[in-house]
Amino acid sequence: MSDILHYLKTRRSVAIPSLAAPAPEAQDLEDILTVAARVPDHGKLAPWRFILIRGDGAVIAGRRLADLVERREGSLSETRRRVEETRFTRAPLVVAVVSTAAEHVKIPVWEQQLSAGAVCMNLIHAAYAKGFGANWVTEWVAYDDEAKAILAIGEGEAVAGFIHLGRPTETLSDRPRPALADVVREIGPDGEAGEATL
């Protein structure tokens, strides 16, 4: 089995609290983002962009998110405030992959959104190739316009994912995966979908 196939068969997400410093930076980060951008992109639109959330910027973003929640819900418990304030400091680097998909004369919005999803997965693969771990999440911030504005995500843009990056501090065990018999069908000679023969 090739190294790539072995990696793809064994890769899994690292729990965010288990992602420690150092984060990818300098050439490592440039390589990771370069690979992330090498995805299917019908029409060469590059319908996505990256926002790096780290260091003092991550701290400030967390405080602003906590303030936003407090304005809406009233005084926060110490625990709830800490959850919001540390949302982007749980890992040493968070890369927001922002979908900029828009109506186009030839390219459906859905295809542009799929391209942004491919960016997220390529980013994760590139991070692992560099010896880092990753976790792809969205959470409430991705779907809230005021929260997105705190992160300089514009109106009409969507969060494809917040990719948390760092060095894994634990040995990962696999989780159950779907059985192929449950997710694979084949169009038979009668034109009907039935069980597939692999």
Results as ranks from 00 to 15, higher is better:
residue 1 M to Q: 14
residue 2 S to W: 04
residue 2 S to G: 06
residue 5 L to F: 14
residue 5 L to M: 05
residue 8 L to Y: 13
residue 10 T to W: 11
residue 11 R to W: 08
residue 11 R to T: 11
residue 15 A to F: 08
residue 15 A to K: 11
residue 17 P to M: 03
residue 17 P to S: 03
residue 22 P to C: 14
residue 22 P to T: 11
residue 22 P to A: 08
residue 27 Q to C: 15
residue 28 D to F: 00
residue 29 L to G: 13
residue 29 L to Q: 14
residue 34 T to M: 12
residue 35 V to T: 11
residue 35 V to Y: 15
residue 36 A to Q: 07
residue 38 R to L: 05
residue 39 V to W: 05
residue 42 H to Y: 09
residue 44 K to T: 00
residue 44 K to I: 10
residue 45 L to A: 14
residue 46 A to P: 00
residue 55 G to A: 01
residue 55 G to C: 09
residue 56 D to Q: 15
residue 57 G to K: 05
residue 58 A to K: 02
residue 59 V to A: 08
residue 60 I to Y: 10
residue 60 I to M: 14
residue 61 A to M: 06
residue 61 A to E: 00
residue 62 G to A: 08
residue 62 G to C: 10
residue 63 R to N: 13
residue 65 L to T: 07
residue 65 L to V: 02
residue 67 D to W: 02
residue 71 R to G: 12
residue 73 E to G: 10
residue 73 E to N: 15
residue 75 S to Q: 07
residue 75 S to M: 05
residue 77 S to E: 02
residue 78 E to K: 01
residue 80 R to F: 10
residue 80 R to L: 06
residue 82 R to D: 04
residue 82 R to T: 06
residue 83 V to H: 14
residue 83 V to N: 12
residue 85 E to D: 02
residue 86 T to K: 06
residue 86 T to N: 07
residue 87 R to H: 11
residue 87 R to D: 15
residue 89 T to W: 03
residue 91 A to G: 00
residue 93 L to W: 03
residue 93 L to D: 08
residue 96 A to N: 04
residue 97 V to A: 00
residue 98 V to R: 06
residue 101 A to D: 01
residue 101 A to H: 09
residue 103 E to H: 12
residue 107 I to N: 07
residue 108 P to V: 06
residue 113 Q to D: 05
residue 113 Q to F: 01
residue 114 L to P: 04
residue 114 L to W: 15
residue 117 G to S: 08
residue 118 A to D: 04
residue 119 V to S: 06
residue 120 C to K: 07
residue 122 N to L: 05
residue 122 N to P: 01
residue 122 N to V: 03
residue 122 N to Y: 10
residue 123 L to Q: 03
residue 123 L to S: 01
residue 128 Y to R: 15
residue 131 G to R: 03
residue 131 G to F: 04
residue 133 G to L: 01
residue 137 V to S: 10
residue 139 E to R: 03
residue 148 K to S: 02
residue 149 A to P: 02
residue 149 A to L: 02
residue 150 I to V: 15
residue 152 A to R: 14
residue 152 A to Q: 14
residue 152 A to L: 13
residue 155 E to G: 06
residue 156 G to T: 14
residue 156 G to S: 12
residue 157 E to T: 04
residue 158 A to R: 11
residue 158 A to D: 10
residue 159 V to L: 12
residue 159 V to A: 06
residue 160 A to G: 12
residue 161 G to A: 05
residue 161 G to C: 07
residue 163 I to A: 10
residue 164 H to C: 00
residue 164 H to N: 01
residue 165 L to E: 02
residue 166 G to S: 05
residue 169 T to R: 13
residue 169 T to V: 12
residue 170 E to S: 01
residue 171 T to S: 03
residue 173 S to F: 00
residue 177 R to M: 13
residue 177 R to Y: 05
residue 182 D to P: 06
residue 183 V to A: 13
residue 183 V to C: 15
residue 184 V to I: 13
residue 184 V to G: 05
residue 186 E to M: 11
residue 187 I to W: 12
residue 188 G to S: 07
residue 189 P to A: 01
residue 189 P to Q: 09
residue 195 E to K: 11
residue 198 L to H: 12
residue 198 L to K: 11
residue 198 L to I: 09
